[in-house]
Design a protein around this nucleic acid. Sequence first.
DNA 1: GCGCAAGCTTGCCTGCCCCGCACTTTTCCG
DNA 2: CGGAAAAGTGCGGGGCAGGCAAGCTTGCGC
Lengths: 201, 201
Amino acid sequence: MDEPIGLRERKKLETRQALSLAALRLAVERGLDNVLVEDIAAAAGVSPRTFNNYFSSKAEAIASRHYDRVVKAAADLRGRPSDEPLWPAIIAATLRQFAEEQPPDPVWTAGVRMMVTEPALVGEFLRTNSLVERELAVAIAERIAASGDDFYPRLVAAAVGAAIQVATEQWLRTDPPVEIDTLVARALAEISAGLPEPEVA
Amino acid sequence: MDEPIGLRERKKLETRQALSLAALRLAVERGLDNVLVEDIAAAAGVSPRTFNNYFSSKAEAIASRHYDRVVKAAADLRGRPSDEPLWPAIIAATLRQFAEEQPPDPVWTAGVRMMVTEPALVGEFLRTNSLVERELAVAIAERIAASGDDFYPRLVAAAVGAAIQVATEQWLRTDPPVEIDTLVARALAEISAGLPEPEVA
DNA sequence: GCGCAAGCTTGCCTGCCCCGCACTTTTCCG
DNA sequence: CGGAAAAGTGCGGGGCAGGCAAGCTTGCGC
């Protein structure tokens, strides 16, 4: 968390963020396919050609915001005391991401719904999650003196991803809205406990 | 599992399969972006316009084969005796898919590697997996008298998907090749056991 | 300061993809 | 056998992604 150098880099980051934010906002406002790359570029104050220097597709630009957000959970995990047991640390780091923002930004929640709904976005959304899981696996590996490519860290990271995924889906579906924290916590608890078959009702 | 009716349907299915097979084979042979939709259509003996009546993208055509394959695991699970405990049934049904074909078809393995590697395919691949998980959740729900939309079945299905995903990744990476069955079995066993933090080495 | 090199932005242009529409051809079924 | 429904096809348009070759900006070393 540093690199004070780079006034040039700064501008680049700003442009990138402006583009991804504009992409998300416009898509939420008017629906994905009423937004042209041209519009996004205009909203960010750059030429359409430049858009593709930053992102290789509309979908990627939108998902980029998602990436920036969830990647923080991995960073959070790194910052936790190293003597804390693994799963409590994971659960705490994850929940913090969802708790941070109350009430949740309506543009963001609409964005999540869109990413999970629009066929043209789902793939990129999932691909992003899978990228984040890699980061997460590395953070997990650090705690147990393993490599981020090893089996166990990858599996744990994938399990966490799956839990969040399911929790998010259920959250989008519940009609009387439920706190997403609750759902995520439940999913993580259950998946870390091994998902035993419930007793016959 | 029937519908004897439909000589019309038959042709449709054949065309669909011809298209997806051609898409996969050509992409493996020459690399994804040296294959035009035109080529695929030609190889399947239909017009380019018809291609898009079946699939909405090249990626979807390729992933369609993947879908057809893995969806069988869910069907397999349905066919198992209903008094068998859940996890053994899941594990058996899943492993059967991988065991079925020995040695594995080289076009297929190359195809999997491609789907996991090529940025343009990864998203569609993941999206397909997520679709299959829905089927799987329904099959799981049947066994425990629940709905396919309920939390627990979804979570189990997602966990299974995550396990297979990780196993596949590791399998593609192991240089002295390992049987994928082994990896899948291990991943399923571990995730169903709850992924406890390993003892410090 | 100052000028040069590296790097970012942009415009232009090409190839390709996806899809709507209208028309033909095939299949189904009474 | 004849009409309705559905599948295949050709054409054309809107849009996207990316190579290339200028311009323009920034940073760095002198």
